[in-house]
Computed example of a mutant assay.
Amino acid sequence: MRFINRVPNRGVRLLLAMLPLVLLLVIYAAGSAARLSENPDDKLLPSFAQMVDAMRHMAFEQDERTGDYLMLSDTLASLQRLGLGLGLAALVGLCLGVAAGAFPLLGAPLSPLLAVVSVIPPLAILPILFIAFGLDELSKVMLIAIGVAPLLARDLEQRAKEIPQEVMVKAQTLGANSWTIVLRVVLPPLFSRLLVSLRLMLGAAWLFLISAEAISATAGLGYRIFLLRRYMAMDVILPYVVWITLLAWLSDAALKHLNRWWFPWSEGAKA
């Protein structure tokens, strides 16, 4: 059997998925042990025990100044900003995508505009957002929305244009007006594609969130990481990075299962 045709079973697939993670942990443990043996006060590669102790303090002990559980408050603050930003981006992206993809008269001005706006680096306009919306929550939410919405809109526009023209003609032949065609023909496949596009944009959304929190915030995962870097507190920074990765992975899995639950036909089409 050719190598390209070899398909691992479920157990082998799980083993292969865990192998890179195990190798990284072993390499890190070896490097940490080597550095700490030379200098017990080394902060660059803390041991797993040091990180567990630091996270116990961050997650399960109240802060003496605020009385909050810092990891919980940081997580809730970041997730709230991320959820609002992605929700706004999804709404705007869906509306613009439908308008540009389903209505040629609207697509003529919107399509070039989206093409230009989508290539503007969102972090380059972050100072403008701070000036326009202040240093509070709105500027952070708007950064995520502005960074994600144009790309969502372009993707959904393309998906709308891929709907067979024969389907549109049949709907009109049966008496459907423009809004009925949008609701019954255009939107169903676009809703499924929207969830897929959101999954693809999660990494960028987290990047925008962490960047905004690093510059101006009083709570949040990005704020905490950039606050503690001054003290080289890698025993907190590294677990926070792992926690952000886990949250992003859980968000991706939630969107995947939501798409499978709401639109099972999309998975069937792939199969």
Rank of each mutant, 00 (worst) to 15 (best):
P112E: 08
P8R: 06
K161P: 03
I4E: 13
F3E: 11
L76D: 08
R13W: 04
R6V: 15
A59Y: 01
F130A: 13
L200E: 08
G85H: 03
M18P: 01
M142H: 01
D155A: 12
M234L: 10
G97Y: 00
S251F: 07
I215Q: 08
A59E: 05
A17Q: 08
L16R: 06
S73Y: 03
T173F: 00
G134D: 11
L129N: 08
T218M: 06
A153K: 01
L207V: 13
R230C: 11
L221Y: 04
L88E: 06
P121T: 14
R13N: 13
N9I: 05
I210F: 00
A153C: 07
A54V: 12
A17C: 12
V186H: 00
V236L: 09
G147F: 03
K43P: 04
M58W: 02
I210R: 01
R154T: 13
I215M: 10
R260S: 14
A90L: 04
W249Q: 13
I237T: 08
A115D: 11
T173V: 11
E166F: 01
E137A: 12
P46V: 13
W243E: 10
R65Y: 04
A100I: 05
W249V: 14
N39W: 00
A17D: 10
L187Y: 04
A54L: 06
V12P: 01
L88M: 10
R159G: 08
L202R: 06
A102P: 01
G67S: 07
A205P: 01
L190E: 05
I146M: 12
F48A: 15
S197E: 08
V186P: 01
G87V: 14
T180R: 03
V26P: 01
S73H: 04
L21Q: 09
K161N: 12
L126E: 04
R154C: 14
P109N: 04
G67W: 00
L21H: 06
A99Q: 02
G31W: 01
F263S: 12
L138D: 10
I27M: 09
I181W: 00
H57V: 15
P46W: 01
L94V: 10
K270N: 15
L24N: 03
G107C: 07
R10P: 07
K170T: 14
R230H: 09
L228N: 13
L247M: 15
L44I: 13
L190R: 03
I144G: 05
A233H: 04
R2S: 15
L194R: 04
D74C: 10
L187P: 02
S32G: 10
R6P: 04
L174A: 11
A132K: 05
R56A: 15
L138I: 15
F60E: 11
P109C: 08
L24S: 07
R199T: 14
Q80C: 08
I163E: 02
E157A: 08
G268H: 09
L151M: 13
G101F: 01
A271F: 03
I215F: 06
